[in-house]
Every structure is written in C-alpha cells, then in structure tokens.
Design a protein around this nucleic acid. Structure first.
Lengths: 216, 216
DNA sequence: TAGATTGTTAATCGATTAACAATC
DNA sequence: TAGATTGTTAATCGATTAACAATC
C-alpha cells in the first residue's frame, strides 16, 4: 500500500461520491471492484477514478481490481470518516430535520450528540428520534459535550449569533447551511454549503448550451 | 460592457455565492460595490473575485467599483437566472419541504409549478404553500406543464424510476438530491447534488490538518 | 497467451496568482 | 495629485488527460 497523498479539492468531492456505489457493490457480494466499473456507474472518466483512488494509497490487483472492502476503508480513511465525529446540530426546521433523517450522516462518521432550536415550541419535542433542546443554555451543554463539529441549519439572519455562542463554547468546526459568510477567528474551520452552486452549474448548461462544465 | 466568457466550473459555483451579499449591499443603499469589498465579505482573494466578475462582461468604474444593480444583473444573466425557469419538485419529505421553503429558489429564477409525492397520505395536502399531487398521473400533468426542470427529492431507491417517468413525459433537466447516479439518455442534463462533498472537504481539513483545500 | 486492469511517468490544459498599466 | 480600483496580459501552479509498462 502506497502513501496517502494530500488533497485536492475536486478529488475530495468526487471521492465521497464513490462510497455509495461501492457499498452497494459489497452488499451485492462483489469481492472486487475495478476503477472501470466504478467509473461506469458514476459516469466519470475511468482515468479520473483511477487517479482519485491512487490518492488514498490503497493497492489493487492488476487485471482484477481492488478488494471492495479495502477500497471502501481506504476512502473512508482518506476522508477522515473512519473515526466517529461527535457533532451537534442547530436549527431543527425542515432542513435540519432532513439532515437528521439522512442515514448517510452516520456513514460519514457523524454522531449527533445534541440538537438545538431557538423556537420554545420545539423544546422537548423529538425530531427524527432526536430530542430538541432550547438555545438558552446551549453554551453550557456544548461545553460539556465538546462536539468536534456544529451543523448550522438556522436562518441566515441568526447564523452569526449562533456561531458566536458556539465558538465561545469551544466549537472549532462548522458545516454551515446558512447563506452567509461567518466571521470567525483563524483557528475555526467553516465549510459553507451553498446548494445554489449546484443549480448554477445546471443553469449555465441549460442556457449557454454547448459547453458542459463538470459537476465537481 | 465586454463579451460574456464561458464557463469554468469553480467560477460558476463561486459566482452564485456573490448574489446574497450583493443584494444585501443594494438593500442597504450601496450604489457601488467593488471587488475588494465583495471579496472581503466572502473571505475570498480579491483577485479571484475580479476574474469571476470579469467573466460576466460587466464593466465598472476604476477607482469606484461596479454599479451594484448592474453587477447583480450581470451575474444573474451569466448564470441564466434572469428568466423564470418553470420547475416541478418530486418528493415532499423534509428535504423537499426545506427546498420549497427556501425563498432563494425564486431568486434563482426557479418557479415551482407542481409538487408530487408517492405517499397517498400527502396527496391533497399543502407543503409550504404548495399543493401536493400524487404520482399516479404525474406523467400527464408534467406533459401539460412542460417544466424545464425537475427537482428530485425522493429516496435513492425510487430516484431512477421517477426519473424514467419524467423523462418519458419530456423533462430534460434534473437537479438530483438522491444519492444515485441516474441512467439517462444523452440529451438529458443531470446535476447531482452531493451534500456529502462539502462535509468531505471539512473532514479532510479537520483530520489531515495543515493543508487547506478551498471550498469550491 | 490474451484480456483486463493497476501503477507510473509525461504532456496538456485550465485555473489561479502575479504584475502592471489605465483611469476614475 | 494620491488612492483606489478596474482591466489586461503574463507566469505559475495544479488538475486532467494521455501514453505505456507491469502483472494478475
């Protein structure tokens, strides 16, 4: 097994999309998976899949492919998804609820340890099996739980205030679904999730025709 | 005003994120917006914003910036968001509901003309102000409405079947939130929306430290 | 052996970064 | 004029594509 090579934004994005088909392959009993078959079910160029897979450092068998389980593990390791990542989610509206119900979150290693919502009517209720807490003593609870990650599903208008509280309570990484750029100290990681971006790509393809930029 | 230059995947993704701050600037009465101030509130390198803005062909005033409204229009035109895009949404679960409630959809030009859901219990109900129809005669309704776009928020397991029906009914563009790669004819556009990709970037930054791939 | 696939190295292409002139 | 910013052209860097050897 070769050395893990380091990132490369488009590769990382693509890499995460290889897992669902690979897991399906393993479930259907395929011991080996080749980059050609994987490329085929992703509709990617096989070359690009081969290069991506090479980044993880996994080694395969020429003429056969990679052991499906080994490949899955290698990708998970590359993405840092092998160890559980304790997280909290703020904002139990429809987006928050959709994420909580998204079984794949667990596959990414995300373990939701607390769910908060500012709406007092929601406090104490259960969303997708998770108990919702109010935001009043969010800081204290977070200080106790020490989540590695906070998932922000709050309205854009309150995102900064919520982030400030969480940063004060020690959170150092955010997955931000609100449509604002957060002002944060340098040691805080923020991953903005702009769903509009995907639609923008589609829209450009639709309107300017001819040219076809790639999805990553 | 220069000529519109054509795409470039990372630019398109970033471009769509410039609109919210620009709209806020206009709302707060700023007649001009410069690429430096825009870069500032996006936390992007000013050079990258300048290059992106140049792609739209808009022209500014040296020493001052761009007329906020003109810049907004130029970006919308570049992304194909100036004309309304009639769309239907399939799958009124929590993710579908989140999208229907996302006011920004209208800003992107998306006009939801119909919402479908396979669950008979949902037929006839209203989600975020949209009446939900059953999927039984989806094909007929879609043939009448002729949407340019279908937004798929159905479970991965049913995505292909739903897409097949819609393609049969004439739909040629999909925004696919299901975690499967759709098999479609060559003249059909599919934009996969893999939210895992964003988390993968964050996760790699968290675990492999040091290196910091960019969000786009 | 023939076919398929991995693994590695080089070539090309495109995106980002840098430098600088022009002008409000 | 000085400061800020646009606009344009060149340099660098990184990602994708291509070519080919190695081997199951």
């Amino acid at each position: 097994m070769g050395r893990i090579k380091l990132p490369n934004t488009p590769s990382i994005r693509r890499m995460s999309t290889y897992l669902p088909p690979l897991i399906r392959m393993r479930e259907s009993g395929a011991e080996f998976a080749s980059t050609t078959t994987l490329a085929d079910c992703m509709k990617f160029d096989p070359l690009i899949v081969r290069k991506d897979v090479a980044l993880t450092g996994v080694s395969g068998q020429r003429g056969v492919g990679y052991r499906t389980s080994e490949l899955i593990d290698a990708i998970r390791r590359y993405l840092g998804w092998q160890a559980p990542c304790p997280a909290c989610l703020v904002g139990a509206g429809s987006l928050g609820s959709a994420l909580l119900g998204y079984e794949a979150l667990a596959e990414y290693g995300i373990r939701i340890r607390a769910v908060f919502d500012a709406d007092p009517a929601k406090t104490g209720t259960t969303v997708r099996g998770f108990r919702v807490s109010g935001t009043a003593n969010m800081a204290d609870e977070v200080r106790k739980l020490r989540p590695e990650l906070a998932i922000l599903c709050v309205p854009s208008g309150s995102a900064q205030a919520v982030a400030d509280v969480l940063i004060g309570a020690g959170v150092r990484a955010f997955w931000n679904f609100a449509n604002v750029t957060l002002k944060t100290p340098d040691d805080v990681l923020v991953q903005p999730e702009a769903i509009a971006g995907g639609f923008a790509l589609l829209s450009v393809k639709l309107h300017h025709g001819g040219c076809t930029p790639k999805p990553w």
